[in-house]
Computed example of a mutant assay.
Amino acid sequence: MRMMKVLSAAVVLLAACGDAPPGTVAVGKPAPPYVAQVLDGDRTSLADLQGRPVLLNVWATWCGPCQKEIPALEALHREYGPRGLRVVGVSIDQASEQQAIREFMQEHGVSFDVWLDPSGDVTSQFSMVGVPNTFLIGADGTLLWKKVGPVHATDNELRGLIEKSLPAT
């Protein structure tokens, strides 16, 4: 009997980790009003970036797949940043790891913005389980694309959506 209760609880928990319920984070819906901290300590938010498309990547220094995707994110930043895309990495490392985050950024040649979220607010607001997760948010704040797992700079779907989200030249 006890085993049945444990199994029932596990099924409920696993179901909770699936797709987000209606009205939460979904492509075509507004992105959550997310607020974080930049490395210098100031507060920032997605609302501060409204009017520009944002590629929001959630990662951690200890995450192997996160480390492997950094060159792709950097390539997207260098290619599309001058045209208006804002690439933002959100680190969920502990608050005491700021120096390790800075060293990670330097070691991996990260030149895009990095926000800190040691409390993991981003994971609950974006209905995430694990890292990396990446979200493309349009200039109007609408979620255009999301990916669980590492991003690839050659992803044609992502590149097409970035192109469509950029201001006309």
Rank of each mutant, 00 (worst) to 15 (best):
D19I: 10
L116P: 07
C66M: 11
L55I: 12
V87H: 00
A15L: 15
A47L: 09
F126N: 06
A16G: 14
L116A: 09
S111R: 12
L7C: 03
A15Y: 11
L49C: 00
T24P: 00
W115L: 05
W59Y: 13
A9Y: 10
S119Y: 05
W62G: 11
L14F: 15
D117R: 10
F112K: 09
L46T: 03
S124V: 13
L14V: 13
S111A: 13
S8N: 08
Q99L: 11
P32G: 04
V25P: 03
Q106W: 01
L14E: 07
T24M: 11
N57W: 00
V87P: 03
W59V: 02
G41E: 09
K68C: 05
K29P: 01
H108T: 02
C63R: 01
I70Y: 00
N57M: 11
D117H: 10
M105Q: 13
Q125M: 12
C17L: 15
L55R: 05
A15Q: 08
F104M: 01
E97C: 01
V12F: 14
A95H: 03
E69G: 03
E74Y: 00
A16T: 09
M4V: 13
L73E: 00
D93T: 08
S8W: 08
Q67F: 00
Q50F: 06
D121T: 13
G64S: 14
E69V: 01
G41L: 12
P82W: 02
A16W: 12
R83C: 02
V54C: 03
E103H: 12
C66E: 08
L7W: 08
W115S: 03
R83H: 12
R78E: 09
D42Q: 15
F112G: 07
G120S: 10
G81H: 03
